[in-house]
């Protein structure tokens, strides 16, 4: 089978058909005034808006800004989350001392920190990054701790029986065994980082997709606004797809792409 045929088969045609039908229904409902709101454009108008944004050169820089912040924030959040998670997962002492603060902080909805961050860092790129990183750390952190502490006892017995040193035990057994779960955390974090980048741009940092979206709203240009909404969606799908194929390529195991190992 050629790779092109395989790709064609990979595409979910019935799913695409449903989406096309929904868009068609929306278009029809707006045209025939079944849906009659002043600022609810039809899909065709949104497509027109997107084309305008593309030709005027407004869309790409905004998308790139949000993409860059998402990726930088995600990298920082992942690095912090994995490092802290390994520490807390491997050291019972560190775990015992930090779990209370950890649980309390985790329980506060992260979005409530947005005004505080704004107050501390002002309308800036720094504020945007701080929010993205703070929120993004959690899923990686929690999954790394879970993955490390959840290594099957059978494998730990193997390590003891083979008299592996502590360093080898961590590097060759515990960390690899935790990787599927860490990967799930990384993926959750990636989509969260995008969401929070857009939120931060809407309320704080005057740049990127979020800011452009609010500007379009204030200028009463719903076609452009929805075009930005759509771009954020496409960005999310693309990031997720790239991440998934990278993970599947790196991990040739029955557990790749799923949370946890076999029962």
């Amino acid at each position: 089978m050629t790779s092109r045929m395989r790709r064609l088969r990979w595409i979910n045609w019935p799913g695409l058909l449903t989406m096309g039908l929904l868009a068609g229904a929306w278009e029809a409902a707006v045209r025939w005034s079944l849906l009659d709101y002043q600022y609810l454009p039809a899909p065709a108008a949104i497509a027109q808006g997107a084309r305008t944004l593309l030709t005027s050169g407004e869309l790409i820089p905004n998308v790139l800004h949000t993409l860059l912040v998402t990726l930088i924030g995600w990298s920082l959040a992942s690095a912090i989350g994995i490092a802290l998670g390994l520490l807390l997962g491997l050291s019972p002492t560190a775990y015992r001392y930090s779990m209370t603060s950890f649980e309390v902080t985790k329980a506060i909805p992260p979005i409530t920190f947005v005004p505080a961050t704004l107050l501390i860092f002002g309308f800036s790129l720094r504020m945007e990054l701080v929010i993205v990183v703070y929120v993004g750390v959690w899923p990686v952190l929690i999954n790394t701790i879970g993955g490390v502490r959840g290594v099957p006892v059978e494998l730990l017995d193997v390590a003891r029986m083979l008299r592996m040193s502590r360093y080898h035990r961590v590097r060759k057994l515990i960390v690899p065994a935790a990787i599927p779960e860490i990967i799930v955390g990384l993926r959750l974090t990636l989509s969260l980082c995008l969401v929070l980048a857009v939120v931060a741009e809407m309320v704080g940092n005057p740049a990127g997709l979020g800011h452009a979206l609010v500007l379009a709203q204030q200028a009463l240009q719903p076609e452009k606004m929805f075009a930005y909404v759509l771009s954020a969606g496409v960005l999310g799908i693309t990031l997720n797809a790239v991440f998934r194929s990278a993970a599947a390529w790196m991990l040739p195991s029955p557990t790749s792409g799923r949370g946890g190992g076999s029962p």
Binding site: E154, L155, D157, P176, A177, S253, P254
Partner: peptide
């Protein structure tokens, strides 16, 4: 002294 465990699937490293 080396042990061979009953649950072979859980005692081998799948990666």
């Amino acid at each position: 002294v080396i042990t061979v465990f009953q649950n072979y699937a859980a005692s081998l490293l799948p990666w």
